[in-house]
Amino acid sequence: MAQHGNHAHGGHGGSEGGHGSLKEYVIGFAISIILTIIPILVAMKGWLEGTSAVVVLIGAAVLQFAVQLLFFMHLREEKGPRYNLMTLILGIVIAVTIVAGSIWIMAHNAMY
């Protein structure tokens, strides 16, 4: 079945898998490590404080999430209608609404 993986690309309507390269994984892994070390230093060594620290931490997490999606989960390599991307965006919209909505509504809840 090795042939399937190596020679069938031309006819593939495939999305993820089958197209990743070692280089891509190594770059993704290296960026992920950097994006993990920076927040650790910011939070543990007190490089930044307050809002700026929160922005850096959340920013690094979101970037690393993007690295996982692009370098490891091959989101870019979808062909044809991008159903994977569309469902992902729907999911993110719902997730952000739940989290941001909960924070907002509880911050303005006089009973809590």
């Binding site: 079945m1 090795a2 042939q3 993986g5 190596n6 898998g17 089958g18 990743g20 390269s21 070692l22 994984y25």
Partner: peptide, 8 residues
């Protein structure tokens, strides 16, 4: 692992 699989 996926890379190894793609290489057969």
């Amino acid at each position: 692992a996926v890379l190894a699989m793609n290489a057969g």
